[in-house]
């Protein structure tokens, strides 16, 4: 590297993004546990609860685990896990 160059590679999670994620995760957790009281049909709250899992998982993967700026393969691998597993579970529950 030439003298005087500045390396700029600081795309890390900041406190504001982490705080927003934390608040969203708490809010979604509270909503998830009270879903059966607001939604009568089990199929609906099963799907709603699993959609909440996907949203929460994306927050943890992208923000807390800092995979948002990781190589695409690794980010997609973890996002696939947090999407496909709830999908498989919902198929099992609804069939």
């Amino acid at each position: 590297m030439r003298k005087g160059n500045v390396v700029k590679n600081n795309k890390t999670v900041n406190m504001a993004a982490a705080t927003k994620s934390w608040l969203l995760l708490i809010a979604l957790s509270v909503i998830a546990i009270y879903l059966p009281e607001f939604v009568d049909h089990k199929s609906f709250y099963t799907i709603a609860a699993l959609v909440i899992v996907v949203i929460k998982g994306q927050q943890i993967v992208d923000i807390f685990m800092e995979l948002k700026n990781a190589p695409k393969f690794w980010r997609l691998l973890f996002l696939s896990y947090i999407t496909l597993l709830p999908l498989i579970i919902s198929v099992i529950y609804l069939t």
């Binding site: 700029k8 995979l67 695409k72």
Partner: peptide, 9 residues
Amino acid sequence: IELPDKKLP
């Protein structure tokens, strides 16, 4: 220099 930010933590 903007290095590629695609780094696995």
